[in-house]
């Protein structure tokens, strides 16, 4: 083999680069997030599996319906009625952003834009106190 001095370091760099997740994780997969489910409420607007896969689409549709088409209707979930919206419906049951939303979003590095406008229940509570 010619040019061992460059070929071998080059190949080593390549292999380290390709197998980078191995070194970074150190064979430790970490914990899989377990979002805190609401207490008392067993039903949601759609079955859990569908919500897991498609909640972001639903939220986007709701945003468009409420804000752009002025269509804030009532949503009925498990016998209770809510006004359509993230804070008015979803977060009535899923009332802890950090323990529900963030657990998976942090794991998968998803940065939803919800909180650019919305307040988390915690923030909303602190605002009420000051005003």
């Amino acid at each position: 083999m010619y040019n061992k001095g460059t070929i071998i370091p080059g190949l080593v760099i390549f292999i380290v680069f390709v197998t980078f997740p191995l070194w970074y994780n150190g064979l430790n997969a970490g914990t899989v997030p377990k979002p805190d489910l609401p207490i008392g409420q067993k039903e949601c607007v759609a079955p859990a599996a569908e919500m897991r896969d498609n909640h972001m689409k639903l939220l986007n549709e709701w945003r468009d319906a409420v804000l752009r088409e002025d269509d804030r209707v009532m949503v009925k979930v498990g016998g209770k009625e809510y006004r359509k919206g993230l804070q008015m419906a979803c977060m009535q049951c899923h009332n802890d952003k950090e323990k529900f939303c963030d657990s998976c979003h942090t794991y998968a590095a998803v940065q939803p834009t919800c909180w650019d406008c919305h307040l988390t229940p915690k923030e909303a509570a602190s605002k009420k106190e000051t005003h």
Binding site: A29, V32, P33, A49, E50, R52, D53, N54, K57, C104, Y107, A108, V110
Partner: peptide
């Protein structure tokens, strides 16, 4: 085609 695409299961 998001049905069955649970990102947490995929990352796991």
């Amino acid at each position: 085609l998001r049905d069955g695409i649970d990102i947490v299961a995929i990352k796991q």
